[in-house]
Amino acid sequence: MTAFQPPAEINWWKSPIGKDEIIWIGIALVWCLIMFFMMPYWHVYGKQNLSNEAYQTTPKKFQASVDAFVEKYKIGEEGGIPIVKPPAGSDVYLAGRLWQWYPILELEKDQTYRLHLSSLDWNHGFSLQPVNINLQVLPGYEMVISLTPNQAGEFGIVCNEYCGIGHHSMLGKIIVREK
């Protein structure tokens, strides 16, 4: 009967601590600091970081940017969705909307693109598979990420934020070609 009784000592803060606890707290604290340090470390030395670049926008404005982008670089169509091949290293636009990722992007391997992401209606989740990169996509906010595809092939973009009854059919595509 003690964890539910008041502490035995009047000045319990001054009672001594056992050796096990002191050692464990020391080890655990060091580990916590290592984990904390890893995040800034990765910002400097790691290659997978999110940029802090983002803008306020509106679905209408973003739609206009996407349309202009598609207009300029469209090279084909699949299932009614345009396939767009922007020049290496340029700005690319991708919109999530009910229920598709628009447009299909064709990129070159090992080139870095500035990917602009936003939603035209509800929350969506950009989930690039099977690479497994996952980003939250919000209406009204445009996130810009520098992305460097380092594998060739066709990649799916799954929507992994629930967006209504057609959520499961919301698939997009990124095609990466060898130079």
Partner: peptide, 15 residues
């Protein structure tokens, strides 16, 4: 994905 009805993506235009 979490919160996803069909990991086979039935009815999707792409696959």
């Amino acid at each position: 994905s979490r919160r996803h009805w069909d990991m086979g993506f039935s009815g999707a235009t792409l696959s």
